[in-house]
Structures are given as structure tokens and as C-alpha cells.
């Protein structure tokens, strides 16, 4: 009788290609992920059905929290460094290179120029209290620092899009001030950041 020799196969599976692939993907996602930068205030944006995504680069972000305080944020380290120097000249505040460097890596900020030095030299804990107590960037008609921030920011890079991230509970007059400021700078096109909401069906 002919013997049937079953080929002896190891039950183990070569997992190497799978692991390779998994790590490739891990690396890809790790490198492409951009973590949300730490924000000084928590903002609960209203929702809309709009599905337009915010562009990833060249964004000037104006944040309005629920107490109506205005914060400002702009992309790009180099842009930020140039911006703070220009603002320093405009408001006659001298910044040391160390302070300029700190500003360039800061995220959103909401202090008047008079307190900017204090914010830059503050430690992390102190910065939190400053952010809690600050009145935001002045944007009323008497003293409109926001207009200067936007103006100099747009000079640095005209491609910048302006996004307004407002808390749903913010009072409208503050938003109106911001929009007026923008229109004063001949910015008539901007984005409002919202959460996604499902469109009603009818």
C-alpha cells in the first residue's frame, strides 16, 4: 500500500509582512497627524449642515469665547515672528529675541499688547491664570488692536483665510465688532467654524 505522506506543515504563520504593513501605517498616521494645539479657552461652536472643511494651512483664527473675549491665532512660525516684531514697533513694545521665539511657538492668545510681554514671560501655570483673567484682544472702535493683528497678518501673507470660531453662547455684538473690523480691512469673505449637523430631510 502506498503510504500517503501528509506534508508536515508548521501551524505557525509568518506574520512579518503583516507587522511590516501595520508599522508602515502607524508611521504614516503618526507623521500625518497634527494634534490639536492647546487652546487657552474651551469654545463650544454651534452646529451647521455645512460640510466644507477648513483648509489646513494659512489660517488666521479669531476665537470668541462665551464671555465675548477675543483670541487670535495665526499659522506659521516665521509669520508669527515677523508679526510680533511689527506689532511691537506699532505699539512701542520692545521684544527680546527670546520673547519673539516664544511667541512663534505659542498657540492662540488673547491679551492686549500692553500685557503681551507678561504673557510671553509667564510660566505655564501663570499663563493659565492670565488666560483666565484676560479681557481678550480689544476690538472696539476706540482701541482696535485686532484690526492691527489682522492687517499685519495679511501683509505677511495675503493668502491667509480668516476663520471665526465663536462660542454659541457668545453675545452677538462681539461677533458684530469682529465682522465690522474685518470689513474695515476689506475682508468680506471669511469662514465660520461650526460642528457638523445632519441636514433635515424633507
Amino acid at each position: 500500500m502506498p503510504k500517503i505522506n501528509m506534508p508536515k506543515k508548521s501551524p505557525s504563520l509568518d506574520m512579518t509582512p503583516m507587522v511590516d504593513l501595520a508599522f508602515l501605517l502607524v508611521t504614516f498616521f503618526m507623521l500625518t497627524t497634527k494634534f490639536r494645539p492647546e487652546e487657552p479657552v474651551i469654545v463650544d461652536t454651534p452646529s451647521s449642515i455645512s460640510e466644507i472643511k477648513l483648509p489646513e494651512r494659512d489660517i488666521m483664527m479669531i476665537t470668541i469665547d462665551k464671555d465675548g473675549r477675543i483670541f487670535f491665532d495665526i499659522d506659521g512660525k516665521q509669520t508669527r515672528a515677523n508679526l510680533i516684531e511689527k506689532m511691537g514697533e506699532r505699539y512701542e513694545v520692545k521684544f527680546t529675541p527670546e520673547e519673539v521665539k516664544r511667541f512663534s511657538v505659542l498657540s492662540s492668545f488673547g491679551v492686549p499688547m500692553a500685557n503681551m510681554k507678561q504673557l510671553l514671560n509667564a510660566k505655564e501655570k501663570e499663563r493659565e491664570t492670565i488666560n483666565k483673567e484676560t479681557k481678550g484682544i480689544p476690538a472696539d472702535s476706540l482701541k482696535n488692536e485686532l484690526a492691527d493683528w489682522i492687517n499685519f497678518g495679511r501683509h505677511a501673507n495675503p493668502k491667509f483665510r480668516i476663520a471665526i470660531k465663536g462660542d454659541g453662547q457668545a453675545n452677538y455684538p462681539v461677533v458684530k465688532d469682529v465682522i465690522k473690523t474685518l470689513q474695515g480691512q476689506k475682508v468680506n469673505k471669511f469662514n465660520l467654524i461650526t460642528n457638523l449637523e445632519e441636514a433635515p430631510k424633507n
Binding site: S48, L54, A163, I193
Partner: peptide, 10 residues
């Protein structure tokens, strides 16, 4: 982490 936006033209 991608926020949505609403574009408005004044």
C-alpha cells in the same frame, strides 16, 4: 480633528 466651516460672503 477636522473642523467644518461655513463660508460667508458679506
Amino acid at each position: 480633528s477636522k473642523p467644518k466651516t461655513m463660508e460667508i460672503n458679506m
